[in-house]
């Protein structure tokens, strides 16, 4: 009886600690995403002021912070009702806060392949609902681009998935299957091409 009680209390407290840790990570991610949104809005406001003062230039547009964790773009997917601030980097802390821009890849709207990744249990939890022909909108460095999804496919986690492109390309990645107990073995890759930009 004593052993049973001891085991019960141990499981109760360990389970509680595990849940607290998990909830804390989710809460921290949500808080950091909100912080990133505020920073992004401030940067947008500064950009508008710069335009108003006729001080905006190509250099000013290119001065996007590339520090890990800094907001670099805004991602909107109307079909999913998704509106997230994209952060620089794809490490655990960054992906806990929001979609991450893969360092070394192009920024959305620039020439080249722009890669954005996120966790399947949070920001890209409904990415599989996106279909070929759906629209994606990105904003980065005062450049707004509209994309159309041209392909979706699932590949092995260790398979080559990202390639350089001459023209502007947007690649969204997350783990697959979306509903999976444990570390998902595959990746869902969506590719989009620009239809218009401003």
């Amino acid at each position: 009886m004593l052993v049973r009680g001891g085991v019960g209390y141990a499981l109760f407290w360990i389970g509680g600690a595990t849940l607290t840790f998990t909830g804390g990570r989710y809460a921290t991610g949500a808080w950091r995403q909100q912080e990133a949104r505020l920073q992004w809005q401030e940067a947008e406001a500064r950009s508008v002021v710069a335009f108003a003062r006729h001080a905006a230039s190509a250099d000013a547009r290119a001065s996007v912070p590339t520090v890990t964790g800094a907001p670099v773009a805004r991602l909107l997917i109307p079909r999913l009702g998704l509106d997230e601030i994209v952060l620089e980097g794809v490490d655990d802390d960054v992906l806990n806060a929001g979609p991450g821009h893969l360092p070394g890849s192009a920024l959305p709207g620039e020439q080249g392949n722009a890669v954005i990744s996120a966790h399947r249990d949070r920001h890209f939890s409904r990415l599989s609902d996106l279909r070929v022909g759906d629209t994606v909108v990105t904003e980065s460095a005062a450049r707004r681009a509209r994309w159309v999804v041209i392909s979706t496919h699932v590949i092995d986690a260790d398979a080559p998935a990202l390639f350089r492109t001459r023209e502007a390309t947007l690649t969204l990645t997350t783990c697959w299957p979306i509903r999976y107990f444990g570390s998902a073995p595959n990746r869902l890759i969506l590719t989009a091409k620009p239809v218009a930009s401003s």
Binding site: T18, L19, F21, T22, G23, R25, Y26, G89, V90, D91, L95, G100, L102, P103, G104, S105, N113, V115, S117, A118, H119, R120, D121, R122, F124, I155, A157, D158, A159, P160, A161, L162, F163, R164, T173, T174, C175, F181, G182, S183, A184, R187, I189
Partner: peptide
């Protein structure tokens, strides 16, 4: 963790749902 031609997709696997 960085982009290169032919690289694999970033490791987006999360253990938080399993932990929960």
């Amino acid at each position: 963790t960085t982009f290169s031609n032919g690289s694999v997709a970033p490791a987006t696997a999360s253990n938080l749902p399993t932990l929960a």
